[in-house]
């Protein structure tokens, strides 16, 4: 078995300023990796490099394609990379407006990826979209409504359905619960957790919230000033943090 995604010394600099430096890890099928750190620690830059949205300044990201090839992202053709992004990968943005097509209905948002890979039967598209809305707990009668009429939590769930409809093997999530009410967050996290488990998805979740990391991930990476300062199993990092910064991070969580 080979890693699904492997990062080798991935670095990204913006001029003299470093976004992320020398990041190495392997992600295996079905694994959920959380990347935590404070704002500006480089976690979002890293996520964008890993997901092919931003070219790395140096280092390599390899991905195991469905046909078994192990391909470097920067050596893929643009057509292949874009196809990957809308079939085998998903990307859940913090702001659902960045991840949804706000001008069209919820059903069309879910159906778009199917149509993009050649589905031309309206009835099938409609039935699949309905099924997915149900799986993310959106009532069927909201299928023709615009995402503008949705609440924040619903939009986020719609974004997830839109990404998962092509059965991707890897989903990138950038602060998926950021900006939501705590009660809405809990429901969303639980939903994501269930889907990830049931669909055997691998995921890379960027978050500054350790509770999100604890609930979703089996492994964690802690970033500070662009570098990974500690990585390991999620319970290891949270219960036996080694680096001074990680200890500070863990001890700063308020106990309710």
């Amino acid at each position: 078995m080979t890693a699904l995604l492997s990062a080798q010394s991935v670095s990204k600099s913006y001029g003299a300023r470093a976004g992320c430096m020398d990041v190495c890890f392997d992600l295996w099928p079905g694994e959920v990796l959380a990347i935590v750190g404070e704002s500006g620690s480089g976690k979002t830059t890293l996520l964008r490099c890993l997901s092919g949205h931003l070219p790395a300044s140096s280092g390599k990201v390899h991905y195991s394609m469905r046909d078994g090839r192990h391909v470097a992202l920067d050596e893929m053709s643009e057509a292949e990379r874009r196809l990957l992004m809308r079939t085998d990968w998903g990307f859940v943005h913090q702001d659902a407006r960045d991840g949804l097509r706000m001008g069209v209905s919820a059903g069309a948002n879910v159906g778009e990826r199917m149509m993009a890979v050649g589905e031309r039967h309206y009835g099938h598209i409609r039935a699949t979209a309905t099924d997915w809305l149900e799986r993310v707990e959106i009532p069927e009668d909201r299928i023709d409504d615009s995402p503008w009429s949705y609440s924040g939590g619903m939009r986020q769930r719609l974004q997830i359905a839109r990404n998962l409809v092509t059965s991707p093997r890897l989903v990138f999530m950038d602060e998926p619960t950021g900006g939501l009410d705590v009660s809405v967050q809990a429901r969303l996290l639980d939903l994501i957790r269930g889907l990830v488990k049931r669909l055997d998805l691998a995921a890379i979740v960027v978050t500054h919230d350790l509770a999100v990391a604890r609930l979703l991930s089996s492994r964690m990476m802690v970033m500070q000033q662009g570098r990974v300062i500690e990585q390991g199993l999620t319970d290891q990092i949270l219960e036996d943090p080694q680096a001074p910064y990680t200890q500070l991070l863990v001890s700063s969580v308020l106990q309710v």
């Binding site: 319970d235 290891q236 219960e239 036996d240």
Partner: peptide, 9 residues
């Protein structure tokens, strides 16, 4: 116990 389980390093 936590060491055996891998929670502590």
């Amino acid at each position: 116990l936590k060491l055996v389980y891998g929670t502590y390093r």
